[in-house]
């Protein structure tokens, strides 16, 4: 039996459909219920829905053998897991954005508002740029408008939200997509099952 942690929401549903097409269906998951765990013993899978940012925690701690989460989470929290497959879905990027026309002349400490503190710190440390990190939990776009920060580091998908708030991307830090991750110990004892599943899903993605 493989325990699979899926991220709640649109991405999770998309990923479940991929798994189902690959032969790991669990029809009860599509029933409209408040249940969180779904099992298909015949196919040897047990799915559960968790908050997207928690998937890597479930996998790293072995509560799930495998799971699907964004590259942003892997970069931010660096969980000790295997990253077996780029699922090429949920595609977006981690970027630096600022008010239109903003120019960083490097003369003063750069104020950076973000949810992704580690990714932002790493990015600017690599450039030896002195920054003041402002950790926010949401509505990051508002920070430069109100003068709370000079720039933001955030996930950008289409850029519409930025455009509507008169902001623009000034730098891409890394591309993001959903990744299939596995617990290291689970991989050792369920090698064949996990490798089979990975291969089947990979063939579907192409």
């Amino acid at each position: 039996m493989i325990n699979i942690a899926l991220p709640k929401g649109r991405l999770g549903e998309k990923v479940y459909n991929l798994f189902a097409t690959a032969g790991y269906e669990c029809p009860s998951i599509l029933e409209n219920s408040r249940k969180l765990i779904f099992e298909n013993t015949e196919k040897g899978v047990r799915y559960f829905w968790v908050k997207p940012s928690d998937v890597s925690i479930y996998v790293e701690r072995g509560a799930a053998d495998i799971g699907v989460c964004g590259k942003d989470i892997l970069e931010e929290y660096a969980p000790d897991v295997y990253e077996l497959l780029d699922m090429k879905t949920g595609v977006c990027r981690m970027a630096v954005a600022a008010r239109k026309g903003f120019y960083d002349d490097g003369r003063k400490t750069l104020k950076v508002a973000t949810k992704f503190v580690n990714a932002a710190k790493r990015h600017y440390a690599a450039k030896s740029r002195d920054i003041d990190i402002i950790h926010l939990n949401g509505s990051i776009e508002i920070a430069p408008i109100l003068g709370l920060s000079d720039v933001i580091v955030d996930i950008v998908e289409t850029g519409t939200t930025l455009k509507e708030n008169d902001l623009e991307v000034i730098e891409t830090i890394f591309p993001i997509s959903a990744r299939l991750i596995a617990n290291k110990a689970s991989f050792k004892f369920k090698t064949e099952e996990i490798e089979d599943l990975t291969e089947k899903v990979k063939n579907l993605i192409g």
Binding site: E60, G62, D80, A185, F189
Partner: peptide, 9 residues
């Protein structure tokens, strides 16, 4: 070394 049932090496 890994033990079945323990999440890390």
């Amino acid at each position: 070394g890994f033990i079945d049932g323990i999440a890390e090496g």
